[in-house]
């Protein structure tokens, strides 16, 4: 397993380089213009000058090379400088956003807290609710609990957040006035009161997101459990007199986790990716909002950097999922 992990990690480098090239070419090919949001009152030749100032006049391969150098050589130096107070990166040009003319990574770092607070919490809450629901629904298939669970999770999954988000805002912010409708990203938790406020402003986006996550994971959990509950080994386990809890929670659960682990692992990069629509509806302004804003403004360095960070996370978590498969089911061998 260790050699497998190492081999995969080594292999990940060319994979990621290739992915970054594909992303770059895709963005190059896509129509759009970083000057599209500049009002029509600014004449075209001025816009052309502005494009040149952004470095758009250079050929594509030079820009790609520049980005590679900036991302893989200069940004790590900046990180080292930030940690150890050294000055390796002084005078080097970092990856600069076209919208804000500031280093992309600074903005990403600024956005991570609210994304982790909201999307991360929702993910954990969603998983914690989904697993028991999935297990129990499968164990008592077609009971009222299973039926209700199916119904709620399917409704939850089929209602898009652009609607459910607005619905909870209208009910809980406008009519009842319980929670703020706009997330305050500058809010700092220092004492009990500010913590309560943080909870209040998180509760609606977290609920909306958790509903989707719960729906999805509980469905996979239930289906996978159902597959395993009828296997021969379950009968064997029961026959040799193991307690029902041990049978279900140890034997069946462990064997049912493979598709669930896949779904959860695929979801973790998505946490960092933020939740584009939910962040927009509640004005959480995390990574998701950053990405969609950058795409709309054709801020290519920003889009390139963000999607590449996601790619790294995706490759990493898929590797983790593969390792977990082996731990869950020792029969799986990769060598």
């Amino acid at each position: 397993m260790l050699t497998f992990t190492i081999r995969r990690l080594v292999l990940a480098v060319p994979t990621l380089l290739f992915i970054s090239l594909v992303i770059f070419l895709l963005l190059e090919l896509a129509p759009g213009d970083p000057m599209a949001q500049v009002p029509l009152t600014v004449p075209p030749d001025v816009k052309e000058k502005m494009r040149e100032a952004l470095g758009l006049g250079q050929p594509g391969y030079i820009r790609f090379w520049k980005w590679l150098v900036q991302f893989f050589w200069i940004e790590p130096q900046v990180l080292i400088d930030a940690i150890f107070g050294s000055s390796f990166s002084e005078g080097d040009l970092r990856v600069i956003s076209w919208q804000t003319r500031s280093p992309v990574m600074d903005i990403v770092v600024q956005r991570i807290p609210q994304t982790l607070w909201v999307v991360g919490t929702a993910y954990i809450v969603g998983i914690l609710i989904a697993l028991p629901i999935g297990i129990y629904s499968a164990y008592k298939q077609y009971s009222w609990f299973d039926q209700a669970g199916t119904f709620v999770s399917m409704i939850g999954f089929s209602v898009p957040p652009f609607f459910s988000g607005v619905l909870v805002i209208v009910i809980f912010s406008v009519n009842l006035g319980w929670f703020p409708s706009i997330y305050d990203t500058t809010h700092k938790v220092v004492d009990w009161d500010s913590f309560v406020y943080q909870l209040q402003q998180m509760i609606m986006p977290v609920t909306v997101l958790a509903l989707q996550i719960t729906a999805q994971i509980s469905r996979f959990m239930r289906a996978s459990m159902l597959d395993n509950l009828n296997q021969d080994y379950v009968r064997t386990a029961r026959a040799k007199g193991l307690g029902e809890t041990t049978v279900v929670m140890v034997h069946v659960l462990r064997n049912s986790m493979i598709p669930v682990v896949t779904v959860i692992a695929l979801g973790v990069p998505a946490i960092f990716g933020g939740a584009i629509i939910t962040e927009q509806v509640f004005k959480v302004n995390g990574i998701g909002q950053l990405l969609i804003g950058a795409i709309q403004a054709n801020d290519l360095p920003m889009v390139q950097t963000l999607t590449f960070i996601f790619a790294v996370l995706i490759v990493l978590f898929n590797l983790i999922a593969d390792v977990l498969y082996g731990l869950l089911d020792p029969r799986i061998r990769y060598d």
């Binding site: 292999l11 992915i19 594909v22 090919l29 990069p269 969609i292 996601f310 995706i314 490759v315 898929n318």
Partner: peptide, 26 residues
């Protein structure tokens, strides 16, 4: 396995909106 899963990683990493814009264009 290796090849197909790397392909999957690639598609997972591609940003949907620019991809669509390119598809529309082409």
């Amino acid at each position: 396995d290796g090849l197909l899963m790397r392909l999957t990683d690639l598609f997972l990493a591609l940003p949907l909106l620019p991809l669509l814009l390119v598809m529309m264009l082409l």
